[in-house]
């Protein structure tokens, strides 16, 4: 089962894609995706209900968030009422250890994304400040990376023993599915996804040329 774990819709300030248009694009282009996770910037979209689209297109649509920390951007999966009160999703300087701890204690899972990127990537901060405990998984394939960024992500992930996931980081419809994550087991819910990320029964994939 393949999911794009990092996508943005019009609910993000720089997102220009409607979720329905993602769905019809995936089907029209016959992309090998079984679903997407919406990771809107600095917020959790508790309101949108995509069940009708899921049924119409036969896709899994889950919701998470991309938050900003002092070590770069981080995807948080399994967001719930407890987590949104544990730290301020809108802040741009959340301490990474606090985000990792909050995600864990609330039953979720946090994954630093595009870690090879300057300033907003985990590894650019490791140079000066050293590694952070409790990071287990990072995004090693990101559809928005410029040349060199994903290479660095993979090298550093290997060095620190982190597992990897992939996501397109799409902000427009036609970028969906450039990178994704393949899961060994079926994923039907966010709980399934968090479990799979914890156990590592998944593998990053890329279709970027």
């Amino acid at each position: 089962m393949i999911l794009d774990l990092h996508t943005h819709s019009v609910r993000s300030d720089d997102g220009r894609a409607k979720v329905a248009n993602y769905c019809q694009w995936i089907k029209k282009k016959d992309l090998p995706l079984d679903g997407v996770v919406l990771t809107e910037h600095r917020q959790f979209d508790a309101e949108s209900d995509y069940r009708e689209l899921e049924d119409q297109y036969g896709l899994l649509i889950l919701k998470a968030s991309e938050v900003e920390t002092d070590y770069g951007h981080v995807l948080v999966f399994g967001v719930n009422e407890d987590m949104v009160h544990a730290f301020d999703f809108a802040r741009i300087d959340n301490p990474l250890p606090e985000v990792l701890a909050a995600a864990k204690s609330c039953g979720g899972f946090a994954v630093p994304c595009h870690p090879g990127r300057r300033n907003v990537g985990l590894f650019s901060h490791y140079e000066e400040r050293g590694p952070v405990d409790d990071v287990e998984v990072v995004e090693i394939y990101n559809g928005g990376s410029i040349p060199g960024e994903d290479e660095r992500s993979r090298q550093e992930a290997d060095r620190y023993g982190y597992r990897g996931i992939g996501g397109s980081d799409s902000h427009i419809v036609s970028r969906i599915g450039l990178c994704a994550t393949e899961f060994a087991d079926d994923i039907a819910t966010m709980d399934d996804l968090v479990s799979a990320l914890r156990t590592g029964r998944c593998e990053a994939r890329t279709w970027r040329t």
Binding site: H41, E68, G72, R117, N119, V120
Partner: peptide
């Protein structure tokens, strides 16, 4: 609004 990117 504020955010962070490659340039800070």
């Amino acid at each position: 609004y504020a955010k962070t990117g490659r340039s800070g």
